[in-house]
Nucleic acid binder design. Sequence first.
DNA 1: GGCCTTGTTATACACCTGCATAATCTGCCA
DNA 2: TGGCAGATTATGCAGGTGTATAACAAGGCC
Lengths: 221, 221
Amino acid sequence: MKVDRRPYRRESEDSRREALISATQSLVAEGGPRAATVRAIADRAGVTPGLIRHYFGSKDELSRAAYRQLMDGMTDKGSEALAELGAAAPARLAVFVAAALRPPVVDGAAVGLWAGYLHMVRADPGLQAAHEAGYLRYRDTLEGLIRDLARPDITPAQTRAEAIACNAVIDGLWLEGGVLPHLFTSGELVRIGLTSVGAILGVNLLNEQSFVPELSLASLG
Amino acid sequence: MKVDRRPYRRESEDSRREALISATQSLVAEGGPRAATVRAIADRAGVTPGLIRHYFGSKDELSRAAYRQLMDGMTDKGSEALAELGAAAPARLAVFVAAALRPPVVDGAAVGLWAGYLHMVRADPGLQAAHEAGYLRYRDTLEGLIRDLARPDITPAQTRAEAIACNAVIDGLWLEGGVLPHLFTSGELVRIGLTSVGAILGVNLLNEQSFVPELSLASLG
DNA sequence: GGCCTTGTTATACACCTGCATAATCTGCCA
DNA sequence: TGGCAGATTATGCAGGTGTATAACAAGGCC
């Protein structure tokens, strides 16, 4: 009594790694990290479990790769939204903030993955350095946008403190929006984010909505 | 060949529940949720695994209880600091915010524990309900303190949005302070928190420092 | 064509997981 | 002083986990 054997299919290394990482992320997104077993991952990637060990030394290493890809994607989202427009400083800041507070950045799966690896980040110095670099890269971008506002009589130290505060607001909103999406109406996170960042900096960012196509009035709750 | 039997020791129900919850929390904080197996929990609590089922119906229920206690404990820290003084509304708000932004609330282990659970929150509806309840309890307390400021011409909807924003600032600062403590000088988190919450609400909270003994100038960086 | 490297699959294994249940101990009350 | 109830321990079980290893397939190279 023979069970049918999976047809042998040879594919590129990039394609296989991508499929495995993608399968890991989607499984964690749906059923939490406990659902992301080697067998489930391999099954979804259309592959047998052995390949995980072949491409990544172990399941943990695959998980780490998935985490790294998640972080890279999130930090890039804001910059991408920025690159397209050369508008005035307040509008650029508004775009950057808004990008972090709506899908695909605000996402339960992203929060879940991020939180799941937080303790590993605390334990592993290498990952901690990477995490810190990512955090500072984001905050520095924010600080640059704040500096570009060219408000008079603002010291560098104050700009730094403001960047920390704005970053915290964004982080907090991103977090709760991802974990408890049903508590916030559509567009509410963006509106609250722009309002409070504006309040912290003493500028009005809500009027900058018109500069952002995706942030039309219709998309606000 | 008989293995030695654990000595029978009878203890109060409260003591046993407390020991099991405490063991669960420390294990999750150290090694993430995966480390908190029934056997490891029972071992650390000085008990056999069967007791978990005896006092809590299942391991999941124990996890939920441990998470609930964590969330409640964080809110309680603020309320405790509040209970002692019957000062004016701005001072009370300042005390509440400051309590969340310094040890023992700001703590790497606490963040690790919280993150470990957040991982599970997404998968388990029961834990999600616990998280939502804890989050709302804290935010409602904050909203009450904001309302007590009795500023003129503030709608309930605006108060709600402000509470969400202030909660986000506190969450973000608490998080980053716990994960990357070396990036912030002592007292910086408290100062930034009071400044930005004040900016969001249009009040000055920094002057309220004098009302808080532990928040003397000496403790600020 | 024969061979060898390597991607891929299948199987085996040792361990661990949570849960159920039986066995045992102890304090309390009649 | 017995004995019962309930707290606590020990054992068993069915299933799942990650990983190691063997078997197989296919393409490149001489």
